[in-house]
């Protein structure tokens, strides 16, 4: 009897104590789920708003390069190609540079130099996108047109197949320039992940290779890189995700012209630059819906790429956790 009573009172006091706990834990759980809800809500809201355009144009929306606000005929091919090409250029330049920076910081730099150089490179990521755009348009584009583009045209312009890609008017505004500036913008993201994964390579592994007489380059290329390849690919994908969605810098320097062009030195557009330029000007419902369909497309592509990147990086973390344990 008394045992039951004390059990009841103990239970009651535990209940009283846990009310605060329940409220607190409940709200933390709610907001954790909120992160889920945000992602789902973005997909649903964009899909609903994009539906009029997608149902009107069907699959043709993806394959047509027509973009005519007057006749309300819209196809996404030009911005899709522009997005992919600028991001590809950014990766072709950004990945080797990031690798070199990560190599320098992890294997070559003296201890006192590691932090300042690492911080300076990471600060490149802190500079707002619009600043890259202004600098790219007013400072870099004229320099590029005068000094770099003629050299590239001389070097590659005469080649078969890819030659036409490197011919064009020296205006400095265009697809290549946008890709180049994107490369600088993704370098801090890719190089900092490469640095992090290079640092986790066990010392003994590297020292064994050095003891066998390997050069620094051989240690990095044949020991560090194979050991960290999953993480390196994850970092590259993360950078690619950033490059695909980057808006303001590209909007400033790409020239914002619809249509497909062989030359990388001609103005073009990307999904995000088209949105930034035209969204508030779109006066017809079908026009707005087509632009939102572009946004949905961009979001789906980046979510897939970023998910892939995260899966790779998580796999790496798990294998490390396993080795430590």
């Amino acid at each position: 009897m008394s045992a039951t009573a004390s059990a009841v009172s103990a239970h009651r006091s535990r209940l009283g104590q846990s009310l605060g706990d329940r409220l607190f834990q409940g709200s933390t759980l709610f907001f954790a789920l909120f992160v889920f809800i945000v992602l789902a809500a973005i997909l649903v809201a964009l899909a609903l708003a994009a539906w009029p355009a997608l149902s009107h144009f069907g699959w043709g929306f993806l394959t047509s390069s027509e973009w005519n606000p007057v006749t309300l005929n819209f196809g996404a091919l030009s911005p899709i190609v522009g997005t992919l090409v600028t991001s590809l250029i950014a990766m072709l330049i950004g990945v080797p540079v990031s690798f070199g920076i990560a190599l320098f910081i992890t294997e070559m730099a003296p201890a006192w130099l590691k932090r300042p150089v690492g911080t300076a490179i990471e600060l490149l990521a802190a500079i707002p996108s619009i600043i890259y755009g202004m600098w790219g348009l007013f400072i870099f584009a004229p320099f590029f047109a005068d000094h770099i583009q003629p050299v590239m045209t001389d070097l590659f312009g005469g080649l078969p197949l890819i030659g036409p890609m490197f011919q064009g008017p020296p205006i400095g505004i265009g697809v290549f320039n946008a890709g180049f500036i994107l490369a600088i913008m993704v370098i801090p993201f890719i190089s900092s992940i490469m640095r992090d994964v290079f640092e986790v390579v066990p010392r003994t592994l590297k020292e064994s290779a050095y003891a066998m007489g390997s050069t620094t380059w051989e240690v990095v290329w044949k020991v560090v890189l194979p050991y960290t390849k999953v993480g390196v690919v994850g970092g590259i994908m993360l950078g690619l995700g950033r490059a695909l969605g980057e808006t303001m810098a590209v909007t400033f320097v790409i020239g914002n012209a619809h249509g497909l062009n062989m030359s990388l030195f001609m103005p073009g557009n990307t999904i995000s630059s088209t949105l930034a330029n035209e969204f508030t000007e779109a006066d017809a419902p079908l026009y707005t819906s087509s632009l939102i369909a572009l946004g949905l497309l961009l979001f789906v592509i980046t979510v897939i790429i970023l998910s892939f990147a995260r899966l790779l990086l998580m796999r790496l973390e798990r294998s490390q956790g396993g080795e430590k344990a």
């Binding site: 889920f36 950033r242 980057e246 949105l275 979510v303 970023l306 998910s307």
Partner: peptide, 17 residues
Amino acid sequence: FINDVLLSAPSIVLGVF
């Protein structure tokens, strides 16, 4: 995982949303 994806999602899409 979802949070990491949102962390790098294109900000212009958030504006459209």
